[in-house]
Nucleic acid binder design. Sequence first.
DNA 1: TAGTAAACGAGACGGTACGTCGCGTCTTTCG
DNA 2: CGAAAGACGCGACGTACCGTCTCGTTTACTA
Lengths: 191, 191, 191, 191
Amino acid sequence: MVVHTGNRYGRSEEARRNVLQEADDLVVAVGLEATTIEEIARRAGVAKQTIYRWWRDKNAVLLDVVIRDTELTLDLPDTGSLPGDVTQMCANLTDFLIHDDAGAVLLSLRAQAITNRAFGEVFRTRFWQGQVAREQEPLRRAVGRRELPDDTDIDHLRLRIVGPLYAAAEEGLLDRGFAREHSRAVLAALG
Amino acid sequence: MVVHTGNRYGRSEEARRNVLQEADDLVVAVGLEATTIEEIARRAGVAKQTIYRWWRDKNAVLLDVVIRDTELTLDLPDTGSLPGDVTQMCANLTDFLIHDDAGAVLLSLRAQAITNRAFGEVFRTRFWQGQVAREQEPLRRAVGRRELPDDTDIDHLRLRIVGPLYAAAEEGLLDRGFAREHSRAVLAALG
Amino acid sequence: MVVHTGNRYGRSEEARRNVLQEADDLVVAVGLEATTIEEIARRAGVAKQTIYRWWRDKNAVLLDVVIRDTELTLDLPDTGSLPGDVTQMCANLTDFLIHDDAGAVLLSLRAQAITNRAFGEVFRTRFWQGQVAREQEPLRRAVGRRELPDDTDIDHLRLRIVGPLYAAAEEGLLDRGFAREHSRAVLAALG
Amino acid sequence: MVVHTGNRYGRSEEARRNVLQEADDLVVAVGLEATTIEEIARRAGVAKQTIYRWWRDKNAVLLDVVIRDTELTLDLPDTGSLPGDVTQMCANLTDFLIHDDAGAVLLSLRAQAITNRAFGEVFRTRFWQGQVAREQEPLRRAVGRRELPDDTDIDHLRLRIVGPLYAAAEEGLLDRGFAREHSRAVLAALG
DNA sequence: TAGTAAACGAGACGGTACGTCGCGTCTTTCG
DNA sequence: CGAAAGACGCGACGTACCGTCTCGTTTACTA
């Protein structure tokens, strides 16, 4: 594979990687609002214009960070049963939010989508719809397997599962124990 | 009550009210990030300095908006039983988040507390701790009444109750039906 | 006289003076093209926005430098005769172009008016028309005194007088001797 | 003559011609300052690098435009007498400055040499010294013919002849009538 | 007649300065 | 002495060109 350094045939892979990396680091270090394009550029050893050439703004850069990392982490295998899938999903999401730098970025972007309308639209279209679909998948499969009734309100159930996890993460109360306990409680209620 | 217009005897009540009102309106109209102190001042017919004299920044103004309105709305009476309290709390919170302008501001500030570290600290200290206490109250009372076991993890339960509501509000899926259905499901799981 | 430092009742005199001074110095030091607004601001201890608040751009700043200094220097007294006036005018213009920092700025702006169309328009309207009038004045007076015929082509004569001075200044050939010799030759031709 | 389109054995004649042509046109159309290398390249159908391969910068391109055209136009024949030579020189210079596109470029570069020090040096060395020599030539010949005294200050006389023409051109007052009138007046003064 | 090396088009890159926006501070004058 | 008005220093924004670079193509001579 040929690595381009920036010419008519493609952008610089190195620049792209550095920008994503430093943007991620900065958000983790100082928070999203204090993160600036100029500082990302400075730390990535990249010209500001190189960032603007490929991304609309700071949020778009971070969206790429999240998209890259979530697709690796949050696409979960079919364990064959609803309890297994839900437990797995809670564990995965928890690990991502707590241990992965991109998890912190995700929480920030989810917040940014609320305070910035234009970005909210982009966030939902480019990322959140997919994330919602990922979160619905185990439930749809369970309906297919007759583990859940046909008329199950998928979104409501989905929010009962993940809502507390996001809320706990925002309050700093999320950890693996919380996730374990939570999936147990949710599954008990379904039983 | 004497209304000052700004002199040696105290601040102008009118200015204070206008600022809070216009700040609220602006957040609802254009979102928190697009809301600026200069525009608030312009629309409130108030000098920028008058805002800075009484509030640290934009977020502090909005925090006052939320504090004023939550204390009226979300302090719920003791209905005498856990099911009644939980149902009431979900209904109240839902109404606040959906129908009250200050509810939109609250969602925005909750988001801002994530992206802006310094404000996060203030938000937690000045508002969120109180809100958490309000949300815990029905559960503590239920423990007192022996409706819940002594070793109940209050915070976990609290997040299982309100987490989905906040998450649903952020996704635009929250309405009274959702709240009713949700409190029913949560209570069933506790039964 | 009250010296304002920047408030609703007027701009900061100090800022204005510093900007004009440093702009002048910079042009003399590094040339007009290498002079930047950012460097002027830095050296004047002034915010960039403060410059943009009062001047359209770098050229406008320098135009003010020139206007301020030419009006003091180049408005010449009526000596009572054409030879006296012309000699005086050549001497004054020469001294200004050679010894006054603003003279260097004038030569630069005269050049800038050629390479930048929009500024050319401003330069002619705000300064050069006045300068032309000043240069014509002695000749008009001479016509009034019957020292020159009624049908004298004022502009042509004016350019025969000052054209060589500007050209010599641009080539670095201008000095007091040149000016003295030049006015003598021009007057001899008129005699 | 072989026309190369760009290969190891030489540069592309077509590219060279197009660049000079479009640079010239652009300066005439929008002025020197608004003329950019990128726009020249775009209009000439040439890569930016092709320009930088052969010229240091925009000014160097335009200097070539002027050099090419002045050498054709401004090298004047010996008419045999000072009056003939001076009249001819004024007429030629006037025609060049007014009717030839390269004349507009020359006025711009003469201006640029003032505002940009580095280019000023290049301009003088590569072009202006030669132009000065061309302008001196008729006067030197006249000294040789004893039409002018041995101790004539050539440069001063030269500036008295061409200075008003350049100044008039810059003010938009130059035309053939002005040139004719001017050479007559200058010669009368010498008579 | 295929190989090869220079010039080419295209355009991404690291930079610098631009002109704008909003921040939070300040000073003046008025009521 | 609080308020209106608004200038100020500051810092980040997003843009425009600069001059440099690398890529893959074209083309004229060479072996």
